[in-house]
Computed example of a mutant assay.
Amino acid sequence: MAAPKHQIRALHTDSTVTVYQAYAPEIGLPAAREGCFPAVWQRDRMTWIKPSFLWMMYRCGWGTKEGQETVLAVEIAREGFEWALEHACLSHFEHGLHADRSTWKRQLKRAPARVQWDPERDLRLQPLPHRSLQLGLAGEAARLYADEWIVSITDITPLAHTIHAHVRDGDLEMARQLLPRERPYPVNDGTLAHLHQ
């Protein structure tokens, strides 16, 4: 059965959800070692978290792009993740969802989080017809993420490289078996209503 166009799929437990980010080693390695972001991590910049492992691989080139060589799995509290969704604004104007462009711009400026829906990726990082959530955190949301929501940070760069090696060798079945087990993430009907049509 085809996946719904807008659906959050993630590795999650009853209390946490795992999101992915990729950083230069001077940020990523201490973050994984200490379980929190180092002082050099900038709280005043928007930070994008991604529940899709393969979308993260597309974005960071399997951990080979400059400044994205360390791939992190960040386990965060579901309460925080859902707070960010509820307080997020769609990153682009959507006719029929927003009253008008100026109203949307005001909402976007005030919102501590923003959402983009980008094409999900397959193992060869080709686009799929359904979308993957990207959640941008700024201001209050970025501070809460860094200081309160994080349960654990794991360096999964070796996993990314291993899966990529299997893909390069054409062994997609082995690569697929190593992927994080992402399942539809349960959200109340109203939680995403303001984030897509």
Rank of each mutant, 00 (worst) to 15 (best):
E94I: 00
L135C: 02
L123K: 00
V115Q: 03
L72R: 03
E94P: 01
S102D: 15
E120I: 00
P112E: 07
L90K: 10
G136L: 01
E75Q: 14
E86A: 15
A142G: 07
H87T: 11
H130E: 07
L97T: 08
R114V: 06
R114T: 11
M46F: 10
L97P: 06
Q126M: 14
W62K: 11
G63V: 07
M56E: 15
S102G: 07
R78D: 05
Q107T: 12
P129L: 04
F81S: 11
H87F: 00
H92E: 13
L135S: 01
Q134C: 05
A141G: 04
L54M: 14
R143Q: 11
L135W: 00
A113L: 01
R110S: 13
I76H: 09
S132A: 15
R143L: 13
A142Q: 13
R101M: 13
G96M: 01
R124K: 13
T64L: 11
F53C: 09
E94W: 01
W149F: 00
A73L: 07
R78C: 12
L108H: 14
W48E: 13
E82G: 09
W83D: 12
A77V: 02
W55H: 12
H95E: 15
A99F: 10
Y145A: 06
E66P: 04
V74I: 14
W149T: 02
M57K: 10
R143D: 12
R124N: 13
L125H: 05
